[in-house]
Design a protein around this nucleic acid. Structure first.
Lengths: 298, 298
DNA sequence: ACGCAGACCCATTTTTTCTAGGCCTAGTCC
DNA sequence: GGACTAGGCCTAGAAAAAATGGGTCTGCGT
């Protein structure tokens, strides 16, 4: 008795993080996505925290939750605290491995642009260790361990955002051999339409903007990786609805050609974001400058 | 493929906490005590963190560890961040249950003083829910969920410290019946000496200061709980080396009497600490004021 | 030289955490 | 107004993480 009775303690850090995430993003589901767990796990953490403090942090509605007044009062502190943890971890990472530069980007950008640029980047920064991580959704740079991210954004007005290319355009492209004799919408429709699962509406969007009077109902093979779709197009497997930003190197090289000279602008700009919590680093500066250069050139 | 590839993520919060604790306290063992786990667990967490960032955070010596330069660079950020987490949690607790007041104290203080005071405290603060948690070592109020702590301290110059009683004194006490006819050191030595395992040197200390020319080699029953020792003394089981601060109520009531009129001062002051991270609270103010009053009176 | 303190390593066990799938509720869309 | 859907809740069981414990190693201080 009285040896080491369990002392009351603060709630588990993971529970606090689940609360912070759910409160900041406005839902257990979004928090679950951010934390890479199931929504149920988040719900359990939040419940544990509510049990600990004895008050409700969220008001449960049939569709979603909203912060209770208690939750609203404490949220800012937790956001700041977890921001501080993340920032400290990032600092630790960058101090421990100052030569390693981590880039997060879309699989398509990684395979079609970065793979193109990397030899030159490596040559320009021989001492750096550049890693590329492909992902579908942009990382929260304040919370995930990357130095840079390259994604398509609507407008690059966030802090640390750098426009890499003007508005993206859609244009149908295919292998040179396949393009011969195609001169109008009908000809184009007669060919197989390659599409990508990440941008499933590209064909419809292009058709509607380019040939509003025609009705488009396309079918064709679809791929989850844009680069595979591109490869198929290069191999003569059909016509791909090309994102100019991404297929530019292949157009320049002549591997692909525009089928019809009709470009449709999109509200997507290839944008580079720098991690806002990281300290200045000459190496990183240099990498950013090189990428800008390469993007401009392409 | 490319569905949801595991994204690199920040290190686990528990690993970061283990690092922070070990670095702040200067050893895995101390960190283990603070976190209520074994030292091996702390070592594993720290190792995981070192693997994550790829650098050593501690330099291992045969006896203990010391911070590496990397560890030294990032420690302050982590300390601040975890302080912020703790503060936010405390705020959550106090907002969710504003009427509950948690006091941490020594078992002896809880049983001999607080138990004495509680009826009056409850009467003075009827709406409050006062909880008392007994523990051997003072809590880190910035990190553990208590509003107040009451412990013996050398000098109350920390922030938030309030002296509850002047320097503590040792004096031998026993039941009135047993005290009769005891008039000197010899008489006292002839009686059973009750001692407490938390302060095992009380008798020797008192004897050396009060009767330096005599040699003391005492034996007698020893109890892990001071209050049990006190009860034994009240029941006539022997002479207890009393801490004046603690036995004052019993002396006042006549349950115990001084055996010899020889008090020896100690460098221990019963001190009350207020949680430094908590916001102002009228209820807490009132409780502090009442406790001061009761302590002064006793 | 010896004993000791403190940390490491690793297999095992315990605890925590996560998932899966069914249920419930309230908007929404024919 | 009935079906559908989104978003959370609950519970059991599975999976993963963390903790323990004991054997080992290394220098420091007697």
């Amino acid at each position: 008795m009285a040896v080491n009775p369990p002392r009351p303690s603060l709630p588990s850090l993971n529970a606090l993080r689940a609360f912070e995430s759910a409160a900041r993003l406005g839902g257990f589901k979004q928090a679950a996505a951010e934390l890479n767990v199931s929504a149920g796990a988040v719900a359990q953490h939040v419940k544990a925290l509510e049990d600990w403090c004895g008050g409700a942090l969220f008001i449960r509605h049939a569709q979603g939750v909203s912060l209770s007044s208690l939750g609203r009062q404490v949220l800012p502190e937790f956001v700041e605290a977890f921001d501080a943890i993340s920032a400290a971890s990032q600092k630790l990472r960058s101090l421990a491995a100052p030569k390693s530069l981590n880039i997060a980007t879309l699989p398509s950008v990684a395979q079609l642009l970065l793979a193109e640029w990397l030899p030159e980047l490596r040559a320009a920064l021989p001492e750096a260790r550049i890693s590329v991580t492909a992902m579908e959704t942009p990382p929260n740079l304040a919370r995930e361990p990357f130095d840079l991210s390259i994604f398509f954004g609507r407008e690059a007005k966030d802090e640390g955002a750098i426009l890499l290319a003007g508005p993206d355009h859609l244009l149908p492209v295919c292998a040179p051999s396949l393009a011969q004799g195609v001169s109008g919408f009908e000809d184009l429709m007669a060919l197989p339409h390659i599409s990508d699962q990440f941008w499933p509406d590209d064909w419809a969007h292009w058709a509607k903007a380019a040939f509003p009077e025609q009705s488009y109902s396309g079918t064709g093979p679809s791929y989850s990786l844009y680069s595979v779709a591109v490869r198929e197009a290069v191999n003569g497997g059909g016509v791909l609805m090309g994102h100019q930003t991404l297929v530019a190197p292949l157009l320049a090289r002549g591997d692909l050609v525009p089928v019809l000279p009709v470009k449709v602008p999109l509200e997507l700009n290839l944008t580079l974001w720098r991690n806002p919590v990281l300290a200045e680093s000459a190496l990183l500066e240099e990498l950013v400058a090189r990428i800008r250069e390469l993007a401009m050139r392409g």
